[in-house]
């Protein structure tokens, strides 16, 4: 036989479960749990019960009170939630969100930043040098004396005082070695200039990252590993990297690097992306002369150097067809590279 309290519980729970609004729930709470509520009344009634029944009924009373209280709270929470949700039911979430005018970093900056980040992970520090240079830093110190066939004065912009605009960032190799003894491990992003007709792939000003590592026993193997890693990081692990022997006056042996990647638009084509090589001992000797010491003893120190064309890399990476777009700075172009 069920105790009346249990019946009371069933009635109360059934009523609460279907309560349509918070007022009804509040009314129910007063009716059952209020000071004179029908459940609370059992508190008084307890006193008149026989001693042996008291603990049993007391426990039951606590259970019933707890269950009804919980039901009221839950039903109330559910009703309040439903009410809040219904207030928002008609909100059109397809409306455009609050705009934030965000700009864009120039794609060349983004390209440089990606490349710099990779080299920094490999322990390279940054270095820099001036755009306006002298002939010694741009040519002579780089094993390209005045009668050298690779010395391209007609492709060089000169200032009236005989200074020139550097034709490559390799000048920073010399600047860095002049100012500090080995070991050296630097990259130097910067502009370079060539007196060349402007077209879709040539501009008077272009951008390079120069790299230089001078240490004991630096080898072609180190150069190869470093640049392979760089291109894999930049273009993805599936990128193929090949080294071709080449000639630069200031490195020996010298190489050009081609890359090929299915991820790029160029697909199956090899694209030339870098010139590099082992620092020519004549460069160390010339630096020593300028330093008036023997800090860069070519018997003790060897090194590698490389130059990356950043405009070209950015064109490859971002599928940009015309180098002139970089200097035009059309916002419709720039905003395509917004983060």
């Amino acid at each position: 036989m069920t105790h009346p309290l249990e019946e009371l519980r069933e009635v109360a729970l059934a009523e609460i479960a279907v309560a349509p609004d918070e007022e009804t729930i509040e009314a129910a709470r007063v009716r059952y749990l209020g000071r004179t509520g029908s459940i609370s009344a059992w508190g008084e009634r307890m006193k008149s019960l026989p001693k042996e029944e008291k603990p049993i009924v007391g426990k039951l009373l606590n259970e019933v009170r707890g269950a009804v209280t919980l039901a009221i709270e839950e039903r109330g929470a559910k009703l309040r939630a439903a009410q809040e949700a219904s207030a928002l039911a008609d909100l059109d979430i397809s409306l455009p969100g609050t705009p934030n005018e965000i700009g864009a970093l120039h794609p060349l900056t983004q390209m440089l930043d990606r490349a710099i980040a990779i080299f920094r992970r490999m322990g390279f520090a940054l270095a820099e040098g001036p755009d306006v240079e002298d002939e010694w830093h741009c040519f002579d110190a780089l094993n390209t004396p005045p009668d050298h066939p690779a010395r391209a004065e007609q492709d060089t912009f000169y200032l009236p005082d005989g200074h020139l605009l550097r034709t490559h960032t390799s000048t920073v190799q010399i600047r860095t070695m002049e100012s500090a003894p080995p070991p050296i491990r630097v990259i130097a992003p910067g502009a370079a200039f060539r007196r060349d007709e402007v077209d879709a792939t040539h501009s008077a000003q272009f951008h390079q990252i120069e790299g230089l590592y001078v240490d004991e026993r630096v080898s072609v193997a180190d150069l190869k590993g470093t640049l392979e890693f760089f291109f894999h990081e930049l273009f993805g692990p599936g990128t193929e990297v090949r080294f071709r022997p080449h000639y630069f006056p200031f490195t020996e042996p010298s190489f050009e690097i081609d890359v090929k990647s299915k991820a790029l638009k160029s697909g199956e084509k090899w694209i030339e992306v870098c010139g590099c090589g082992m620092v020519h001992p004549a460069v160390f000797e010339e630096v020593n002369r300028a330093r008036r010491d023997a800090a860069y003893d070519p018997e003790k120190w060897t090194g590698y150097a490389f130059g990356l064309g950043m405009d070209r890399l950015a064109m490859i990476l971002f599928d940009i067809s015309d180098i002139r777009l970089f200097a035009q700075n059309d916002l419709r172009f720039l905003k395509q590279f917004a983060a």
Binding site: G123, F124, A125, L126, R185, D222, G225, F229
Partner: peptide, 20 residues
Amino acid sequence: GINRIPSADRSRFTPVSTAD
């Protein structure tokens, strides 16, 4: 042949520079 030369992953710790 450069293909026969292994690829090394040599690095060196470098302190931050003014340019950095």
